[in-house]
Simulated assay, not measured.
Amino acid sequence: MVYEVRRLRLLRELAVHGTIAATAEACCLTPSAVSQQLSLLEREAGTPLLVRDGRRVVLTEAARVLVAHTERVLAELEKARSEVSALRRAVRGTVRLSSFPSAAVALAAPAIAACRAAHPDLRILLDEREPDRCVTGLRQHECDVALVYEYDLLPRLADSGVALSPLLHEPLVAALPPEEPAALPDGPVTLASLRDQPWIAPHSDNALRTVLERACQAAGFEPHLDYTSDDYTVIMALVQAGLGVSLIPRLVAEPLSTDVRLREVSGLRLTRTISVAVRRGAAEEPAVAALVNALRAAVPG
């Protein structure tokens, strides 16, 4: 019995996405092509792999066993490719880096510049995407290295085929107008002390907006979200104009703070962890390792 790796990869993606249509979209295939390949895989396995449940499909026990082995097979293939590349002892080729915007500014830009100076034969391509799309991009070989983030108040990113290595832990800070609300003490502030203030939140950054809302709820109130924006420059300008307060990662806030007062938050653990992500088994590939090391070196002291 011989399994075709490409079909095993499709089964793994189906386990992640849940439907043939979503799997086809993630893999840039048509639904009929995905169904055909999975039917061939069932024939190779000699046992049913999928059971229809309305619009979704449920993996059988045999399919779940195959998915578990597929994760290990793909990681071993990545490791083999990395070790063969390492034998050349040359840092060359093309590495595709995906990053969310604030890390692209603070980490990716200096890391790419350092790699260009140290490794002239290494080409690094950069695109921007949010963490969940970065993980998908790594699985689909759309990128080789990714910068991702996780918040304490949200579920962790989890994918057995992707290895995360933390780069830094940064606090979320309260962004207050130059003329701070009356009666605030010096030093860190509690969110409860800001409960009566208008709040300014991200519009499409659902993760940070959810963290803001959950943090305020944990402090005993629902925030009045008077203003939202997808542009952090706009958010900071609104705060500076005295129109409200916000909760922003320090890496985002400090370069934009101007006259805005940034205060630590007490009483809650509000932290964003920025990590570098690679496909499991790929870390030893020389070009990937060079970029990861440069990203580590770019972390502010």
Rank of each mutant, 00 (worst) to 15 (best):
V2L: 10
E4Y: 02
V5Q: 07
R6S: 12
L11R: 00
L11C: 09
R12F: 10
L14H: 05
L14F: 08
V16D: 01
T19V: 14
A21W: 01
A22I: 00
L29Y: 02
T30F: 05
T30Y: 05
S32K: 13
L38S: 07
L41A: 06
L41R: 04
G46M: 01
G54Y: 08
G54P: 12
R56G: 13
R56M: 09
V57L: 02
L59P: 15
L59K: 02
V65T: 14
L66E: 06
A68Q: 06
H69G: 03
E71N: 09
V73W: 11
E76C: 07
E78I: 01
K79T: 07
E83Q: 09
S85G: 15
A86F: 09
R89K: 14
V91Q: 03
R96V: 02
P101Y: 15
P101A: 10
A103G: 09
A106Q: 13
A109P: 04
A111T: 12
R116W: 14
A117V: 13
D121Q: 11
L122S: 00
L122I: 06
L126A: 07
L126R: 12
E130I: 08
E130N: 08
R133Y: 14
E142V: 04
E150K: 14
Y151M: 04
Y151W: 15
Y151R: 02
D152A: 03
L153C: 07
S160N: 15
L164N: 10
S165A: 14
L168F: 09
H169E: 10
E170M: 11
P171V: 09
P171C: 06
A174L: 05
P181L: 14
A182H: 07
L184H: 14
V189K: 11
T190E: 13
T190D: 10
L191H: 00
L191W: 02
S193W: 15
D196W: 12
S204T: 08
A207I: 07
L208K: 12
V211G: 01
Q217E: 04
A219P: 01
F221V: 09
P223W: 00
P223S: 08
P223R: 08
T228V: 14
T228C: 02
S229K: 08
D231Q: 06
I235P: 00
I235N: 00
A237D: 03
L238Y: 04
G244I: 04
V245T: 00
V245M: 07
V245K: 03
V245R: 08
L247V: 01
R250V: 10
P255C: 13
L256H: 05
S257K: 13
T258C: 10
T258W: 05
D259M: 05
V260H: 04
L262A: 07
R269F: 10
T271S: 03
T271A: 03
I274S: 10
I274Y: 00
S275R: 12
S275D: 03
A277K: 05
A282Q: 00
E284W: 07
P286Y: 13
P286T: 13
P286C: 10
V288N: 06
L291D: 00
N293W: 14
L295W: 11
L295T: 04
R296G: 14
A297T: 12
A297S: 05
V299L: 05
G301N: 12
